[in-house]
Design a protein around this nucleic acid. Structure first.
Lengths: 186, 186
DNA sequence: TTAAACATACCGTCTGGACGGTTTCTTGTC
DNA sequence: GACAAGAAACCGTCCAGACGGTATGTTTAA
């Protein structure tokens, strides 16, 4: 019944809307609810419209991946720019992005992708490439054992958040961040 | 076709077989392939047979969860028994279980569960309870910030394995384990 | 006029699961 | 120990809905 058909066309806006809705949907109703029907309907577009922008489901997830990693890259770059100390710079940015409150809103959207990442070989490849790229870009400054350790800890923290593990209180959280930052400077 | 119908009945063996097949299937063909049809067929049982042991799919995953956490608990208890130093004992067991080669075989079976854990609220609850229980059982000895940090790092490491991230060489891996153990003793 | 941006209708497949039967095991009774 | 009788362990079939995707039409912008 929606007359999106007759309204002004803003393809880029629609495309963005589809991506956001896909992420939002997985948050609120679980990743299993991310279907072409559900996404298109929630975005106020017909399924045909969705399939015009993303020829198949994988390409939708792929678009989401690109979208989020781009934002992540941007956030990381910003944090790195403000850090005068070369050693462990990337690792500290990694920490900062995870612990920043606004960042979390985005990081929650990763739920869909985490699922898709594990099940879809193609996305697993892209993830591997992402990790590899950042590892090589920051080789020398962030390849110390301790730096790796810190980043793994952040990943674990992130996973715990995702799984809704008993959240630690703000004080402990802050202390954890400080500790991680300290190790990154060793 | 199969005359499993007429052979000796070993309900417990069949049940176990179903669980193992479910885990194995997700390893080899991806978690998406864990369907009632596929599992029952691979286990040499009819779908009706499967549904006799597990009234629905969730209860199958639930059974898998119980099975694996039981084994994990057992492994952890064993490692803890051999550790004379109380402080960080649980955390070191956590490290040991993850890094032991045989343990990995089991840990790979967690793939299905990781998926299901994130999507199924019920299993997410069970996981939360598992974490909570072990946290409280070892409060005092393993509630230090550094201990938490180490365990999060192990989780991150485990996730990286799961996602097939560029595996680090054996030497680095061993060094990482040593470093984690060292921190657990601080 | 033409191509992009949508909508509508429809299809094939897969999946979870309900259901009614059949065979084997167990248990109580004599 | 025999034997009925109920329970437990299966099998085979069928189905309703969901889901991804196609094919084709219609509107809008360039």
């Amino acid at each position: 019944m929606s007359q999106a058909h007759h309204r002004k066309k803003h393809p880029e806006a629609v495309r963005q809307q589809l991506l956001e809705v896909a992420a939002k949907l997985s948050l609120e109703k679980g990743p299993g609810s991310v279907t072409l029907d559900a996404v298109s309907q929630a975005a106020g577009v017909s399924k045909g419209g969705l399939l015009h922008h993303f020829p198949n489901k994988l390409s939708l997830l792929d678009g989401l991946f690109t979208d989020l990693t781009d934002k992540l890259d941007q956030a990381l770059a910003e944090k790195m720019r403000d850090d005068p100390e070369p050693k462990g710079r990337f690792t500290r940015a990694y920490i900062a992005v995870f612990f920043q409150p606004e960042g979390m809103a985005d990081s929650e959207k990763w739920q869909v992708l985490t699922i898709a990442l594990i099940s879809e070989p193609h996305l697993r490849d892209r993830w591997r490439q992402w990790v590899d790229r950042h590892l090589q870009e920051n080789v020398g400054t962030d390849s110390a054992l301790d730096a790796m350790l810190v980043r793994y800890a952040v990943d674990g923290l992130w996973l715990a958040d995702l799984l809704g593990s008993p959240t630690m209180d703000a004080a402990t959280r802050a202390a954890m961040m400080e500790r991680l930052l300290a190790i990154s400077r060793l």
